[in-house]
């Protein structure tokens, strides 16, 4: 009963918030509703008893969206609406139709629910974190390691892109010091 109420509450809120993310013309509303929606998705994991995944969802997306905010801060005036360029109507129609199709398939999937079986059921007595760890380091070891290598590649690429003028300080303007010295000399 409580789970039902919580589920519908979280569902309505999540869908509503993500709608705001898509529809809103204001960067601040869009980002904030995205963050709130991501936090609320962790609620579904908690309802399902997957505490560990819920908290991971919380921590990962809070950090990731915080980084997105910093880009929004650099590129947009957060208190103003953004003028959107209207792309071709055909593309909107196509993407909208595809999304609707996927949505219908997702809602229709539970009809076939007998075919779904838990391949890796929870172990009695073992915690959430242990169960996730066991699956991650046996069945899904290769994808896990490939993902790690991908992240490493992304990190090294980021360092190379950003690290061209690492030896020059951006905050200390050395030419400004020279100007001050010049003024002193003239006096």
């Amino acid at each position: 009963m409580y789970e039902m109420i919580a589920f519908y509450l979280f569902s309505v809120l999540t869908i509503g918030l993500f709608l705001v993310t898509v529809m809103s013309k204001n960067v601040l509303y869009a980002m904030t509703s995205l963050a709130a929606g991501m936090v609320l998705i962790s609620g579904f994991f908690f309802i399902l008893g997957a505490d560990f995944l819920g908290v991971v969802q919380l921590i990962v997306y809070v950090g990731a969206i915080m980084a997105l905010y910093s880009f929004a801060m650099m590129f947009f005036d957060a208190t103003r609406d953004i003028k959107e360029k209207n792309t071709s109507n055909a593309l909107v129609f196509l993407l909208g139709g595809l999304s609707a199709l996927v949505l219908v398939l997702m809602f229709a999937a539970p009809i076939h629910s007998e075919a779904i079986q838990a391949l890796y059921p929870m172990h009695e007595g073992a915690g959430n974190a242990q169960d996730v760890g066991i699956v991650l380091f046996t069945k899904y070891l290769v994808p896990f390691e490939v993902a790690a290598v991908m992240l490493l590649v992304a990190m090294i690429a980021g360092i190379i892109l950003a690290g061209k003028k690492m030896d020059i300080s951006l905050t200390e303007d050395i030419s400004a010091d020279d100007e001050i010295l010049v003024v002193k000399d003239e006096k």
Partner: peptide, 18 residues
């Protein structure tokens, strides 16, 4: 009493910086 208490607390405090 969550069995992942520490992670939850740290995650929630991180969300607080919003």
């Amino acid at each position: 009493d969550l069995n992942i208490g520490i992670l939850f607390v740290l995650g929630m405090m991180a969300a607080g910086l919003y």
